[in-house]
Simulated assay, not measured.
Amino acid sequence: MSTALLVAAGVLGALVGSFLNVVVHRVPRGESVVRPASRCPSCGHAVRRRDNVPVLSWVLLRGRCRDCRTPISARYPLVEAGTAALFAAVTAVVGPAWSLPAYLYLAAVAVALALIDLDVHRLPDPIVLPSYAVALVLLTVASAGTADWWALLRAAVGAAALFALYAVLFVAKPGGMGLGDVKLAGVLGLYLGWWGWDALAVGAFLAFLLGGAVAVVLMALGRAGRRTRIPFGPYMLAGALSALAVAQPLADAYLSVVGLSPSA
Rank of each mutant, 00 (worst) to 15 (best):
R75S: 14
V90C: 02
F163L: 14
A164P: 04
R49D: 13
G176D: 11
A135H: 06
P96W: 07
R69Y: 11
L169V: 04
A167G: 07
H121N: 10
Y105R: 03
L165K: 01
L138P: 04
E80W: 03
V111R: 07
A114S: 15
P130A: 03
W150G: 08
T70F: 08
A102H: 07
F170R: 13
D148V: 00
P54A: 12
Y76V: 14
Y166W: 08
L115G: 08
D67E: 15
I127S: 05
G175L: 09
G63L: 10
R75F: 11
K173T: 14
D125V: 01
L78S: 12
D117P: 11
G82Y: 10
V168C: 08
L113G: 13
V93D: 04
A151F: 00
H121L: 12
A135C: 08
A159D: 00
A110H: 02
A142I: 00
G175D: 10
C65Q: 05
L123S: 07
L60E: 12
R66W: 11
P124I: 02
Y103P: 00
V93H: 03
A81E: 10
N52Y: 01
T140S: 15
V128Q: 03
A159Q: 02
M177L: 15
V59P: 13
R154T: 04
D51V: 15
D67A: 15
A151M: 01
D148M: 01
R75K: 13
A74D: 12
S131V: 05
A144L: 14
T70A: 15
Y166P: 00
V168Q: 03
L129W: 04
G158D: 04
T140V: 06
L78Y: 06
I127V: 15
S131E: 09
T83W: 06
V157T: 07
P54D: 13
A135K: 07
A112H: 06
A81K: 08
P130I: 03
R122T: 10
L165I: 14
L169K: 02
A142S: 03
L136N: 09
L153H: 07
A142C: 03
D117Y: 04
C68M: 06
S143D: 02
G176L: 11
Y103C: 02
A142G: 02
V134F: 09
A172T: 07
A81R: 08
F87R: 03
D119W: 06
V168T: 08
S57Y: 08
V90K: 00
A135Y: 05
V111L: 09
L104F: 01
V79N: 12
I72A: 07
L100H: 02
P124K: 05
P174H: 06
D119K: 09
L115C: 09
N52W: 00
L152T: 02
L104G: 01
P96L: 08
G176N: 12
A160H: 03
T140L: 13
A97K: 05
W149Q: 00
T140G: 15
I127W: 04
S143I: 00
A81T: 11
L113T: 10
A155N: 00
P101L: 05
I127C: 06
D51F: 12
R62W: 12
L104I: 02
A142V: 01
L165F: 12
D51S: 11
P174I: 02
N52G: 13
A110C: 09
A164D: 05
T91E: 01
L56T: 14
R66V: 13
R75M: 12
P126F: 03
V128C: 06
R69D: 15
P54V: 10
